[in-house]
Design a binder for these strands. Structure first.
Length: 420
DNA sequence: TCTGGGGTCCTAGGACCC
DNA sequence: TCTGGGGTCCTAGGACCC
């Protein structure tokens, strides 16, 4: 049996941990740039705030119902996530950290008789130690555990735990789950399935195997197995190194000047390079994209991207920046109002296995040491103290974050103060 | 009229996830 | 005025090889 533990309305719950006055009140957390609602408390959901709604479209709803609004505070969410995951890891020998707010636990080696009771204990402990409410789904496969979790959220709000103990409970969950709500079925597949008369997961498990293979490839085949109780999705017990790393942001306001965009490109590249060094990888290619705002139909639109191979794979900030700025020069056109750009470093290889170049004149060892010092200093001070001139200081493209809460758990200056 | 057969590698794009 | 960010996997089709 496997468990899927999922934090309820995670970002909204994080905001509540250090601000208990928010208990029982509608809360939403906005995406970067205070763009869209990406997390909602139950009360906000009840008011009809849909996932991904642009904030400016629900201004009236927010005002009339006194919805508490927060900008995303990833320092806080990341840290609370680590704490939740640490607790979960103490309950099972094999835990897969699936996302910032979810983990799979392998319970098969454990001697527990009553998994329902175990689920409730996990839930109580996480709540007590972190303040975060979680829901637990338990079932014979990952996909069914996801389904059990969803079932618990909808139908077992009192306990927050649901165990698909036998065929009877499995069938009940399958019948309860519309095809579009199955983990691994997105809008396209859902449409296809509905067109062909499959409404719920219970219908889908009766589908002919060759039809599923033809229409939904091997992905569908695996999914069908999982729904039938045969584990078919691999476990990732340690996080594998990333194969590509992306840093992209919308600008706080539309940008027209190349020098401003260069600054953003330099900063995004520096962020990618830092992430590369953290996982000890080098990139063989760097990809840059630049775009206008597609929502502004009245404006001329421009969307370009370019991929540049590096002669020698690298994670060196100045070297990658130089290439990125060269790439920007290639695709930048005057006369557009730019909304967003991004850097993707691709084809990552372990830093220890970099193929050196025949005509390479760089002193890579020395460059690497400089980066090491830079990372060390920046980490120690908890911010980007050391940076390169092209990154600039005043960020003209900076994000809008009007309602940012304190980084309670990772910055000593922002810790909760108690008055006696 | 008629134009081989079998294989690998790479890339772009689609679909999905949170 | 204002519309997120960061990933993975799979397939089809083209380029190339002998």
């Amino acid at each position: 049996m496997f468990a899927l533990v999922d934090c309820n309305n995670f970002y909204a719950s994080c905001e509540r941990v250090f601000n208990p006055k928010l208990e029982g009140k509608p809360i939403i957390v906005l995406s970067n740039n205070d763009g869209c609602a990406i997390a909602r408390s139950e009360e906000a959901k009840a008011l009809g705030v849909e996932m991904g709604t642009p904030a400016f479209m629900i201004e009236d709803l927010i005002r009339d119902n006194n919805i508490q609004v927060f900008s995303s505070n990833y320092s806080l969410y990341g840290d609370l996530s680590d704490r939740v995951m640490t607790i979960l890891s103490s309950y099972a020998p094999q835990v897969e950290l699936y996302s910032i707010d979810e983990a799979f636990l392998d319970l098969s080696q454990l001697a527990y008789e009553d998994l329902q009771e175990l689920g409730q204990r996990i839930r109580a402990t996480v709540r007590q130690h972190t303040g975060i409410p979680v829901t637990v789904g338990i079932a014979p496969t990952k996909t069914l555990a996801k389904m059990a979790n969803r079932f618990a959220k909808k139908k077992r709000k009192d306990t927050g735990v649901h165990w698909l103990k036998g065929p009877e409970q499995i069938l009940e969950a399958l019948e309860f789950t519309a095809v579009g709500d199955i983990w691994g079925i997105g809008p396209q597949r859902a449409k296809l399935l509905l067109r062909n008369g499959f409404k719920t997961a219970a219908d889908l498990i009766k589908a002919p195997e060759d039809w599923v293979l033809k229409q939904m490839t091997v992905v569908g085949q695996r999914l069908l197995n999982e729904l039938r109780g045969i584990p078919s999705i691999e476990w990732e017990l340690e996080t594998p190194p990333k194969k590509s790393i992306c840093t992209s942001r919308s600008f706080g306001k539309l940008m027209t000047e190349k020098k401003d965009i260069s600054q953003a490109v330099a900063n995004y590249t520096a962020a990618c390079a830092e992430k590369l060094r953290t996982q000890n990888s080098c990139a063989e290619k760097i990809h840059l994209f630049l775009q206008t705002n597609p929502h502004r139909v009245e404006d001329p639109q421009y969307f370009r991207s370019i991929t540049v191979p590096l002669t020698v794979a690298s994670n060196n900030t100045p070297e990658l920046t130089k290439t990125a700025l060269w790439a920007l020069n290639k695709i930048f056109r005057h006369g557009f109002k730019y909304m967003k750009c991004g850097i993707i470093v691709m084809d990552l290889v372990p830093a220890t296995e970099v193929q050196s170049g025949l005509f390479d004149k760089k002193n890579r060892k020395k460059d690497g040491q400089v980066m090491q010092v830079l990372d060390k200093v920046n980490r120690q001070f908890g911010k980007e103290l050391l940076r390169f001139a092209v990154q600039g200081y005043e960020k003209r493209y900076k994000l809008r974050q009007a309602s940012l809460s304190p980084r309670y758990t990772t910055r000593i200056e922002e810790i909760v103060k108690v008055k006696l």
